[in-house]
Design a protein around this nucleic acid. Sequence first.
DNA 1: AACATAAGAATCGTTGAACAATTCGACAAG
DNA 2: CTTGTCGAATTGTTCAACGATTCTTATGTT
Lengths: 226, 226
Amino acid sequence: MEHGVADLERDRSRLGRSSTAERVADILRERISEGFFEPGQRLSEEAISDALGVSRNTLREAFRLLGHERLLDHRLNRGVFVRILSAEDVADLYRVRRVIEGAAVRRNPTPQALGLIKEAVADAERAAARDDWRAVGTANIRFHQALVTLNESPRLDEAMRQLLAELRLVFHVMKNPRDFHEPFVERNRRLLELLESGRADEAAAFLDGYLDDAERLLVHAYEPNA
Amino acid sequence: MEHGVADLERDRSRLGRSSTAERVADILRERISEGFFEPGQRLSEEAISDALGVSRNTLREAFRLLGHERLLDHRLNRGVFVRILSAEDVADLYRVRRVIEGAAVRRNPTPQALGLIKEAVADAERAAARDDWRAVGTANIRFHQALVTLNESPRLDEAMRQLLAELRLVFHVMKNPRDFHEPFVERNRRLLELLESGRADEAAAFLDGYLDDAERLLVHAYEPNA
DNA sequence: AACATAAGAATCGTTGAACAATTCGACAAG
DNA sequence: CTTGTCGAATTGTTCAACGATTCTTATGTT
């Protein structure tokens, strides 16, 4: 009666997290990242605190949290709005990705991280095979999140998590997710191979081209609408 | 009557910045980073809200902000504490520095960034000449902050700012700031020269050694106390 | 004496109401 | 068409209250 216990430790992080404000933040974060709240939309304190059955004070604490994650834009005396990313924001996000992911692929890959990456690649391929491009998208995010774990830095993992959440604000502009995700399924596989064979420099160069293309595709689909 | 207006836009950022909660956060952030509040110390909601003349709710909003910056540790139902960095935290912070600063020195330096770096180096040298090691410390921080601007990424600048604020939590354990800062005044100058002459790879290698030594020194002074 | 336990104090978490401050739109005046 | 003014709506902040949780201290048992 001891081997099942170790697994529980992974859930321990969920225990500490219980204040109402944090749970409210979780709900809102999810709603934002799934596009339920659209960028630019104002989130009324009264309406939402009412709908969720929490006080305005508690809701405001949640707003602060999300503001710090850059998902909400807090304008004094005017309220909070779902963040609208500018083209410069997207460019900056990709600049950061080049730095963080670039450093990751240059490191000696640990078996653990490679495992995560491999899983994500396989998931994306399976999802692509059944034409589920939404699932390809989430698998792709998992892929890049896994890449970053190569750095073995909790803070970089966290930074990447936030960065991807921010990027999700603009992913919704893609009307046709297939065009955006399809080319990268194969490239993920290729990048994985480069990592496995220890060709770090090639992997880094490959990743740079990868990110350039991804950014271009994203900005192209994004600019016209803004 | 149109050319004077454009210049005003730069000051627009100053307008949004003011809410009691944010100003309170500014005050507390400063107090923490100057060591007035010691790591591990509990910050009582009642005492502080009383002392600053703000309500508990407003203070709690400020606490959330600082918690997100990792300066405060928020434990449910127990209050907020000034963060205590573990040795692993320090190691992780330096891991992130290697990634962010390493990427910075590999880039083609802009004259603007070089100017900031040069200033910081000169300030450190002047302060060292007059034995003001506290000033050397702040100039050194400015040096590394300036390094990061080479990335030309607002988000990386912000990440660095937070990272350095976090590191300041442990800088205070240095009883003799001279031992810690003195060796790096010269190395800052050397790194600047490498950047100016465009020898990016050498600069990167030099920086790695630099950070290794700095981390070692810091951990050495830190570990025994913990 | 050591240790478990239970009552009590202190503090946090959250709420709801209240009022001041600010924004924004509409409408009037120049 | 710009500028001033009024008022409704919303946010910013405070305050008082109460339940929930943690910490402290006193109590009683082995």
